[in-house]
Structure formats: C-alpha cells, structure tokens
Design a protein around this nucleic acid. Structure first.
Lengths: 187, 187
DNA sequence: AAAGATCTACCTACTTAATGGTAGGCAATG
DNA sequence: CATTGCCTACCATTAAGTAGGTAGATCTTT
C-alpha cells in the first residue's frame, strides 16, 4: 500500500542528513528508491513539500522517543543522558541532524521550512526545560540556573557535538562530551 | 591590485556561511561582486578551489584572533569567554560557521574540503586544549577532566549554539549559553 | 455479479532554467 | 610584448517540475 511513500521519506531523510537539503536531487532520491524521478512528484509535488513532510515525520519520531524517556527514566540527569543517546545514533551512522542540515541553509531556506525547524527546536526546548525543572525540584539536577537557559545549553552542546564528531567519525568523542554535559548537570 | 580576488573571497564567505556550500552558485557570487560569472573562474578555476581557499583564509583569521586572545587575556575562563565572543559575531550577523556549513554536506563534500575543515577543527581543538591545560595549571580552570575532552566539549557547545541561535536570531540566548559554559569551567 | 467510471501509482518524454566550466578575445599594465 | 583581468558567448549537464498516458485496483451503478 503506502510502501513507496514511506520508502521515499526514509531515503530522503538519509540523503538530507547525509548531504544537506540542497545537496541532493530528486534524481538521487529516485535512484535510491528505484523509481522514476517524475513519480516522486506524485507523492511530493515539490521539494519543499518533501522537506516539510520530512521534518514533521522526524519531529514525530523524536516526540515518541522523548515520551518514552520520560516514562522509563526517573531522574533528570538520566533523562538528559538518554536524550543524548538519540544523537549518538547519528554519529554512528554518519548522519547529521535533519534540522541542523536545514538550519545551515539559513536565508536560502524556504520560509515554510524555517518555521518547521524552529518548531522542532522549540519542542525539544520545552521538553528539556520541563525535564530540567522537574530534576531541580526532585534534587537530581543542580539548581541555580534557569531551566530555560539550561535547555538551550543542552541542545547546543549535543547538536554541536553531533556536527563535529560526525566529521571525525568518532562516537567515542561524542560519548565523552555527553558524559561531561550530564556530569555538569548533576546536583 | 588584488582587490577583486579579496572581494570574491569576502562575498563567497558570506554566501557559504549564509546558505551553505551547495546553496550558492557562481552566478550568485558574480552578482554579489559585480563581475561576470566566467571571470570568477580566472581567480578560482573550480568551486572546490574557491572553497578550499575560503577555509584557509577563514582558519588564518581565526588563528590571528586566537593568538591575540592568548596574548591579551591571562586566565583560562577569560580566554574561553573571548573565544566564544568570536562565535557571537556570527549570530549577530545571521551567519553560521563556515566549516559547519561545509561539515553538514558530509559525504557529498569533496574529499579535499573535508580534510581542510578537519584541520580547521583540529587547530581549534589544539588551541583550546593548550588554553585549558594552562588554566588547570594556574588554577583558573577546574581540574579533574582531561583538557582534550574539555576542548571538544567547548567547541561542540559553541558550534551548536551558533547553529541554533542563528536560526532564532537570538544573540542574547547565545550569550546565556556561553556564560553557562564559562561558569562551568571555572575552578 | 457485470459494466462502466474513477482513482492510484507509476511510467516516458519533455520543458525551462540554472549549474559549473570552457574558449577565445580585448584592453590595460608593467 | 607578455601577462593580468576581465569580457562575451558558448557548452554539457543537471535541476525541479510538467504533460500526458497506461495498467491495475476500487468504487458505483444497474
């Protein structure tokens, strides 16, 4: 049934995360999926449509993962550590963050996509803020700093580590950075 | 004399940092500089040549700034704060890090450029490691963590903050993250 | 249940514009 | 007079997107 569409999304995500949004073409995607270029337009009329769908699907997957972490891990630092593990997967596969790949495009990025990725980051920020606030309340996270500030700090560190350690193909170095981050958050 | 060449480098840097390497064309650059597209090839035969020159020039500018920081600022945390200020400029101008823009391209990036940006990051890593080690020795930086690990951590945080806060056009948020980072490094 | 109509998912073939890059000329400079 | 720096004009390729068609599934009507 909707197999091709899912395959298109999967391969497109790999392409964007691997080479950037401007760095892949419908021809590349067609070849990856084993379909004709024109057929892609049947599922995603324009490249921006595809990009927007990609971001939504990516955000949804993250949302599920974030909910699972909150359900499975009780303490603040543990949750942040689990959150960081999500990024580690990218380093291991040699794939960057989808939204980082889009964010780099900056001014050239269609307005619609810019809004979508801002929403993505805001969602993470809100989740992290809630997690950190709860951690401060239960004494597992060090207090004295505003959760909102800390949340931005956490994302920045992980996004940056993913960007750099993917280049160096060094999951171990990513793990070190994550460890320093989590250690610094403990009460 | 070499005015056009310098102008090409300057405008190209702005374009790459603003929209990514694959996100700008020789036509864009020609228009920005006020020259014909073909004339660019006289200075930079291929786009990869241009990119490589860009990275070297960018790294050289940073090298000078890093040397100045080491000369002007005595303590470890102060030096890291000054280092972070360099990134802040990007947020204020709405420009990302040149090497981050290239790093995002990942596998699609010509091998030569990938090596060049790896060298860029390695240079920063070495500088930071030396600064942090000296800071630990003179007691201004908290000890207990390896300078090499801390150095990667610092770059990751700043690169990530630049990436995200540029999207949000929020220099203030970047400053907050930098403050948290520096505070955490103090002895 | 058979017949027709419609829809889905894909195809070939194409258009238009942009890409990076080349060839060759010409005027100024040293 | 040779080099530098730019030009016009071009090339092959690739980009995203369109036009129009076809086989098969599905829905509708009798």
């Amino acid at each position: 049934m909707r197999d091709t569409r899912a395959e298109l999304l999967s391969q497109a995500e790999t392409l964007v995360r691997g080479r950037g949004f401007a760095g892949f073409s419908y021809a590349d995607l067609a070849e990856a999926v084993g379909i004709r270029k024109a057929s892609i337009h049947h599922h995603f009329p324009t490249k921006v449509d595809l990009g927007a769908t990609l971001v939504v699907a990516y955000a949804d997957r993250y949302d599920a993962a974030l909910a699972a972490i909150r359900a499975d891990v009780p303490d603040g630092p543990g949750r942040i550590a689990a959150y960081g593990q999500l990024y580690l997967g990218g380093v291991e596969q040699g794939l960057g963050c989808l939204c980082a790949a889009l964010a780099i495009e900056g001014e050239a990025l269609p307005e619609r996509l810019r809004g979508d990725i801002a929403t993505f980051f805001e969602g993470h920020l809100a989740w992290l803020e809630a997690v950190l606030r709860a951690g401060q309340a239960d004494g597992s996270v060090r207090s004295g700093l505003e959760p909102a500030v800390l949340a931005r700090y956490v994302i920045a560190t992980l996004e940056g580590a993913l960007l750099m350690e993917r280049l160096f193909a060094s999951p171990a170095a990513f793990a070190d950075t994550l460890a320093v981050l989590v250690e610094g958050l403990k009460a």
